[in-house]
Amino acid sequence: MMKAGFLRDLLFAAAVLIVLIVVPFIFTKPSLRDFLIYVMAYGLLAMSLNLLVGLTGLVSFGHAAFFVSGAYMFGLLMQSGRVSIPVAILVTVLGTAVLALVIGAICVRLKEIYFSFITLAFQMFIHSIILTWVSLTGGDQGLRGGIPRPPFFGIDLSSGVSLYIFSACVFVVCILIMRQVWQSPFGYTLRLIRDNPNRANYLGVDIVRMKLGVFILAGAMASVAGILLSLFVSGAYPEFGFWTTSGEAIFMIMLGGSQLFVGPIIGAILLRLIEHFVSIYTEYHGLVLGIVILAIVLGLRQGIADYIVEFLQRRKEARAAPAQDASAKDATFAKERIA
């Protein structure tokens, strides 16, 4: 069962990867490639945050702390000129995981809004350190001088196309890893903690440890998103770690939907598209965006992807209802079994 699911995910991931790689060869505009890399980096950030928000019910306001740490650690390692890209990625992800372990060990003990505030506090603290430690980070100017991309295993990332393909591969691998977590017993334990922490506790689940585990995983994934963005822009900036970046990621999750696995990616694409098209027609894109948000929240009361999934489900049920008695009984029976 688990294996068949994994095989299906693997095939799906391969299909997505092929589409991602083929698309820029059909539509050769470089701006499309840039748009996709951007969406992949921010989409990965939003997806990793959704492991906390949607899966575990931990609303972190400080997730960009790990995004910025990924970008800066990777940038600094590459600028030191001593390591190759794969080694730098590995060290950055492990380093960020340790950072997430330290911050998470303090944060996950707090509940609800207090968790949100303390993650925000840690993120802004890191942001301030980056601004203050000018000799290492370049302060508010960001990490300048470009990030070198020495070839490794015969792969040269200096051209735009190869960088794009590399990013797409990393992106798909990360999504595949998160998908396995989303479907694993660990993932269902996290859902249990989200929905009924008392019951989880009675069943012998070590809640703090589980939350810490997913916090570290989400942090590590966010650092990969930071690496992708720093490779793309060839630099790292303090804004990556400002609270607005975390806010944007939360916004992508809410726009797309937090309960569907790919919801945050849909949100990331929608947000970029809205911004792109609205800024063509008017300079007041905040006004339009605000009205769109209000319409979604007050009208749908959930993310767009979540809404569509629920809508389809309801229609399916409505269609099944007038069918024969026996099949309806079967359906309810099957439903009961699933529940």
Partner: peptide, 24 residues
Amino acid sequence: KVYGKDILMQLLVCYAIILIFDDL
């Protein structure tokens, strides 16, 4: 309209209001 909803919904409407007010 979002009393009793999860905090993210409240956050989102407030964010919308901030965007709208700044542009107004």
